[in-house]
Simulated scan of single mutants.
Amino acid sequence: MAEVKLAAEVRTNFGKGAARQTRRENKVPAVIYGHGAEPQHVSLDSHALMMALKTPNVLLRLDVDGKDALVIPKAVQREAIRGFLVHVDFLAVRKGEKVSVELPIHTEGELAPGGNLLEYVLNTLPVEAEATHIPESVTVSIAGLDAGHTVQAKDIALPAGTTLDIDADAAVLQVVSAQAEAPAEEAAEGEGAEAAQA
């Protein structure tokens, strides 16, 4: 995984008012925590951080007043409508250290013919990985899968050095029959019509 370097400034003013002022300056308030140290309040350039966070579980090397801090994003708050960054929690990490992260799940291939539907039980896969070698995602082949098939966590090939952080038998994806969905939709439409008549 690529390492992204960003500059960060130490924040000494806290609270909603101070956070709003930080955002008015096109910066994002953030907190670095981990390894038993006191949380460190910082701010980062909004655009640079937004671009860095386009990569899931990106590894960031922050220059905090001349000192290096290796971190990964753990909680990202965005504005509901425009999606602007509001606040970020970073977890301090070290090389060789294992961390728990969630990897986006991508699929490849086509389901068996018949108009069946793929249902995501999980959108991300919880795993443990070495802090400086976190995969960006996992890919699952759904080629030829038919209705009734369930992909479990243990069925997904993980990158080297990565282990599951979830029950191996947990359902991740399942293929459902399009015909099974139709009656439920028709029933819902019928109820809507009855409600409209009432």
Results as ranks from 00 to 15, higher is better:
Val127Phe: 01
Ser46Cys: 03
Leu164Ile: 05
Ala2Trp: 08
Ala147Phe: 11
Glu189Phe: 14
Pro113Glu: 09
Val172Leu: 02
Glu191Leu: 15
Ile166Glu: 00
Arg94Gly: 08
Val99Ala: 06
Arg20Tyr: 04
Ala8Phe: 09
Ala180Gly: 06
His106Lys: 15
Ser137Phe: 09
Ala182Ile: 15
Thr12Val: 13
Ser43Phe: 03
Glu186Asp: 04
Ala2Met: 12
Ile156Trp: 02
Arg11Cys: 09
Val71Glu: 03
Ile166His: 02
Glu97Val: 08
Leu173Ser: 00
Gly192Gln: 12
Lys67Tyr: 09
Val88Trp: 06
Val176Leu: 13
Val10Gln: 12
Glu186Gly: 00
Ala52Cys: 09
Gln40Met: 15
Gly109Cys: 11
Ser141Val: 10
Ala143Gln: 15
Phe90Tyr: 07
Val64Arg: 12
Ala92Thr: 08
Leu49Ser: 02
Val64Trp: 04
Thr55Pro: 00
Val86Pro: 00
Asn13Trp: 07
Glu3Ser: 13
Ala30Asp: 06
Gly192Val: 11
Pro29Asn: 03
Pro73Gln: 10
Val127Met: 01
Gly15Met: 14
Ala75Asn: 14
Glu9Arg: 14
Ala131His: 00
Ala131Glu: 03
Ala69Arg: 14
Glu119Ile: 13
Gly192Pro: 01
Lys5Phe: 09
Leu173Arg: 06
Met50Tyr: 09
Tyr33Asp: 06
Leu60Trp: 05
Lys67Ser: 13
Ala196Lys: 13
Leu44Ala: 02
Ala2Tyr: 08
Ser43Gln: 13
Ile156Glu: 01
Ala129Gln: 03
Ser46Asn: 10
Phe84Leu: 13
Asp89Trp: 09
Ser141Arg: 05
Asp146Phe: 02
Ala178Met: 07
Phe84Met: 07
Glu189His: 12
Leu173Asp: 05
Leu85Trp: 03
Asp89Ser: 08
Glu136Val: 09
Asp65Val: 11
Gly144Phe: 14
Glu186Ser: 04
His47Lys: 15
Glu110Met: 15
Leu49Tyr: 09
His35Asp: 05
Asp65His: 06
Ala157Pro: 02
Phe84Tyr: 07
Arg78Asp: 06
Phe90Leu: 08
Lys5Ala: 10
Ala30Gln: 07
Ile81Cys: 00
Glu9Trp: 05
Val71Arg: 07
Val86Leu: 14
Leu117Arg: 10
Ala178Ile: 12
Gly15Val: 12
Glu79Gln: 11
Pro159Lys: 05
Val31Trp: 05
Gly83His: 08
Ser177His: 09
Tyr120Asp: 04
Gly148Lys: 10
Gly192Asn: 11
Gly114Tyr: 06
Asp63Ala: 10
Arg23Ser: 08
Asp63Ile: 10
Val31Thr: 13
Ala153Gln: 04
Ala52His: 13
Ala160Gln: 15
Ala184Lys: 15
Val58Phe: 04
Ala180Phe: 04
Asn57Thr: 09
Val138Tyr: 02
Asp167Arg: 00
His149Asp: 06
Thr150Arg: 14
Asp155His: 14
Ile105Met: 03
Val140Ala: 00
Asn26Tyr: 09
Tyr120Asn: 03
Gly34Glu: 07
Asn116Thr: 11
Glu136Gly: 11
Gly144Ile: 15
Lys154Phe: 05
Glu108Gly: 02
